[in-house]
Design a protein around this nucleic acid. Structure first.
Length: 193
DNA sequence: CTAACTAAACCTA
DNA sequence: TAGGTTTAGTTAG
């Protein structure tokens, strides 16, 4: 089978202190935009139809990083292996059971959001967990609704697989990027709603 | 204050 | 048993 996914470009984008990088990766589902800092992956967006759409999408997060300022430097540490990440994203969209190896930049999340997202990050490929169960795992059993809010703040789609969090009664629950993407991602993992 | 990717405990008939 | 209401938790705007 031919490799339909490829990394399109890999520029050193930055002006403010040289502390952010971005890439746009072409997959079978569209162009995936992402950016990272010396701490790890900061943002990974859902696929969009065109390259310029992807550029537009990631601009918001780049601007946000610049606004945060100061805390990000020392990019030369090469914390991100973009080659490997590109391969993992490619594999994911081919339906392979990928376990992402990339480090995440947790900057600008609240403590609660961080706890929730780190729990969600550990949900294995092909498995789902309810909002309530995640609430239990962060030690706050009645916070299922707050968990919904927290996963909604997730910047790194797929890497923190918030699409694997569903409602208790066997329904899909919500998804900030649109329920179609939630269905699509779960479908790639052989889970159908 | 409210709305948002929830869910369980309590009513009431 | 089914259906409606309340309550709990976090957070951005």
């Amino acid at each position: 089978m031919r490799d339909i996914c490829q990394q399109l470009f890999f520029p050193n984008s930055n002006s403010m202190g040289g502390n952010v990088e971005k890439a746009i990766i072409e997959t079978s589902d569209g162009f995936v935009a992402l950016c990272w800092t010396s701490l790890g992956l900061f943002s990974l967006k859902p696929p969009v139809p065109t390259l310029s759409d992807a550029e537009m999408q990631i601009r918001t997060d780049i601007d946000r990083l610049k606004r945060l300022g100061g805390r990000h430097h020392d990019l030369n540490r090469e914390i991100i292996n973009i080659k490997l990440l590109t391969k993992e994203i490619n594999d994911y969209f081919r339906g392979k059971p990928v376990k992402f190896s990339v480090a995440v930049d947790w900057t600008d999340y609240t403590d609660f959001q961080k706890k929730v997202l780190q729990v969600v990050k550990n949900i294995p490929w092909g498995q789902v967990v309810s909002y309530g169960q995640v609430a239990v795992r962060v030690g706050n059993p009645r916070a299922s609704r707050a968990v919904g809010g927290a996963v909604g703040s997730n910047r790194v789609l797929l890497v923190v697989p918030c699409h694997r969090v569903i409602a208790r009664n066997g329904t899909l629950g919500g998804f900030s990027s649109g329920l179609d993407w939630k269905r699509r991602f779960l479908g790639l993992e052989n889970i159908y709603f």
